Simulated assay, not measured.
Amino acid sequence: MTTWFRTYYEDEDLWLYFEADDEGWAARQVEVRGQDSRPVSAASLEEVLHLRDHADLAALGRYERQYGVLAEAVLDGWQDQPQAAEISADEFERLWVEARRILGVSG
């Protein structure tokens, strides 16, 4: 079952929003700076896998510079992280669309 949740990374003042698949891997991830609510990443596992399988390392590097890097571990224990909470699919989708719009323009 897909889950959507957020956690807060205090050391970096970042809100991390995840769409996790039924095995607990990040399918999509958005990071938003707490200070100014500006998105700093919006990465998708599907896009990363497509680039890995159909492009070269340079293309993957460009993607990561523009959209950031996706979490590379199972997201177990997120409930124990600071300010962790489940969010709705709609809330995640709104954040995703806005982050991709902003990062797409600036990237």
Rank of each mutant, 00 (worst) to 15 (best):
L51C: 12
V32H: 04
H50S: 00
A42K: 08
D21I: 08
V32P: 04
D53E: 09
L49A: 04
G34D: 08
A58E: 13
Y17Q: 13
E23D: 11
H50E: 05
Q29W: 14
V30M: 06
D56S: 03
V48C: 06
Q35G: 05
W25I: 09
Y17H: 12
S41I: 14
A55S: 10
Q35W: 05
A26S: 12
A43H: 10
P39Q: 14
L45M: 14
D56I: 02
S41D: 14
E46K: 15
A26P: 04
Q35L: 08
S44A: 06
V40F: 09
F18D: 01
R28D: 05
E23A: 13
D22R: 10
R28N: 12
L49F: 03
E46I: 13
V40S: 10
Q29Y: 10
A42M: 09
R38A: 11
V32Q: 08
H50M: 01
P39W: 12
S37K: 00
A27Y: 06
R33H: 01
Y17W: 14
A55V: 03
E46T: 11
L45V: 10
E23Q: 15
R52D: 05
Q35Y: 00
R52L: 05
E19R: 11
G24I: 03
E19Y: 04
R28E: 08
A59H: 01
E23V: 07
A43T: 15
G24H: 01
A58R: 06
G34P: 05
S37P: 00
V30E: 04
Q35S: 12
L45W: 15
R52F: 12
H50P: 01
L57T: 01
R38F: 00
A27H: 09
V32M: 11
E46W: 14
A27G: 13
E46H: 14
A27S: 07
G34M: 04
E31D: 11
A42T: 07
